[in-house]
């Protein structure tokens, strides 16, 4: 879906849904996740549909993930750090499962 045009200076390791990924140091988290093959980062609140990064600048709130235990963080506004633990599918997804249609 996306590829890197410029080789990064260094790499760090983050875990996404428990799996380790080597990503470019200092990279935007949403970019790192797209490169790692995660197109959808969470499910929508009402219909439970896949959502991925959309606006890339903190406006749309579609790229919400859980970072080191903190829920609903905007992946497009965060840079990766070594050892960062990310979970896709925020609590909004869990909420969607309990809401009757």
């Amino acid at each position: 879906m996306f590829r890197r045009l410029v080789e990064p200076a260094g790499h760090v390791t983050v875990t996404i849904d428990g799996r380790p990924f080597s990503v470019a140091a200092g990279e935007t988290l949403s970019t790192a996740m797209l490169l790692a093959g995660f197109a959808g980062l969470r499910r929508s609140a009402r219909l439970g549909r896949e959502r991925g990064p959309f606006c890339g600048m903190g406006v749309c709130f579609d790229c919400l993930v859980t970072i080191d235990g903190a829920a609903n963080r905007q992946a497009c506004l965060v840079r990766v750090r070594d050892g960062m633990a990310v979970q896709t599918g925020t609590r909004l997804a869990a909420l969607a499962d309990t809401v009757p249609e």
Binding site: F2, R3, R4, L5, V6, P8, A24, E27, T28, T31, L34, L35, G52, P53, F54, C55, G56, M57, C76
Partner: peptide, 16 residues
């Protein structure tokens, strides 16, 4: 995505 988002990925991360 938006074109702006793609341009941001280009500028910040060199990703296309």
């Amino acid at each position: 995505m938006t074109a702006g988002a793609a341009q941001t990925m280009l500028k910040a991360d060199g990703v296309v």
